[in-house]
């Protein structure tokens, strides 16, 4: 029939949404466009898309030369280890902690929950100096496990807060069924509860992964002078006091955001469901 599918209202609404989407896409356009320009193109026509002669070499340069030691390739590897390690530890510790807090109705568990909420509210930078001193005396500075512990502990209150909210809304029947079926506490947790927590686990993993992946400050302070540089620190090394290679910075930034983008695209639905809460059974 070919009828116009919009009403005047829906047309205006959709147009506004397209414009907003374009506005949000603009930084990505500059990111990609500049990352593909040569130094000359960058100075002569910084905003024009480099369609005719994209300079893919910037990516190779950024990958091998960024950072103080080992280039961005090494930094990428470090960031993956630290992010995966932190996320795995965080998910395990926070889900177990939250499970006990949510399911036990004692005063102790309520008190613990309040402690975690306080930890969630307090700015992490307040404890920076004492944490640094403790980590130094424990020999945890500039080590993978040191930074993983630090990130896990830092994000734990936030993750516990999210998990507790989700678990409290979860019917206890599944766990009770598992108990009557003969499962012990650990089997109940790992075989029944953890799979039920998948939506919120995706949310926690993605949010915390993003925090750790993008972290610049903690990596800079607690890993300075070591070979374990992370992507944001490596990116920072392109920025020089006298001269900044913006095309390499942008190529490096593109490399840094691609994995995050990929994970979000794959796990988008779970992520949203985790925030919305609920189990389909």
């Amino acid at each position: 029939m070919g009828a116009f599918r919009y009403t005047s209202r829906s047309f205006v609404r959709e147009l506004a949404m397209i414009l907003a989407a374009m506005l949000f896409s603009l930084p990505f356009y500059f990111l990609i466009a500049i990352s593909l320009k040569s130094d000359r193109q960058l100075t002569r026509e910084p905003l024009k898309p480099p369609l005719a002669d994209p300079n893919w070499g910037n990516y190779a340069d950024a990958w091998s030369n960024g950072g103080t030691t080992g280039g961005m390739g090494r930094a990428f590897f470090n960031t993956v280890i630290i992010t995966v390690g932190s996320v795995v530890c965080l998910v395990l510790v926070s889900s177990m902690t939250a499970y006990v807090i949510a399911r036990r109705t004692s005063k102790l568990s309520n008190g613990l929950y309040v402690l975690f909420v306080i930890g969630f509210i307090m700015p992490a930078t307040l404890g920076l100096v004492p944490v640094y001193v403790v980590m130094r005396s424990a020999g945890l500075l500039a080590t993978y496990h040191g930074i993983i512990i630090l990130h896990t502990a830092g994000i734990l209150p936030f993750a516990v807060f999210l998990y507790v909210g989700f678990i409290r809304a979860l019917p206890t029947e599944y766990e009770e069924a598992a108990q009557v079926d003969g499962a012990g506490m650990l089997r109940t947790f790992f075989r029944v509860v953890i799979p039920l927590l998948r939506p919120i686990t995706t949310t926690v993993a993605m949010l915390s992964g993003l925090i750790v992946w993008n972290d610049f400050f903690i990596a800079l302070i607690f890993m300075s002078g070591s070979s374990i540089g992370t992507l944001p620190v490596a990116l920072n090394s392109f920025v020089n006091e006298n001269y900044t290679q913006w095309n390499l910075v942008f190529a490096g930034a593109t490399i840094a955001i691609l994995p995050v983008l990929g994970v979000f695209v794959v796990a988008q639905r779970q992520f949203v469901r985790g925030l919305a809460g609920g189990i389909r059974g």
Binding site: P171, E173, Y174, E176, A177, A178, V180, V192, P195, L196, R198, I279, R280, G281
Partner: peptide, 11 residues
């Protein structure tokens, strides 16, 4: 035990 909402493990 059989529960009112069956409590079948959804996963």
């Amino acid at each position: 035990m059989v529960f009112q909402n069956y409590a079948l493990y959804p996963h």
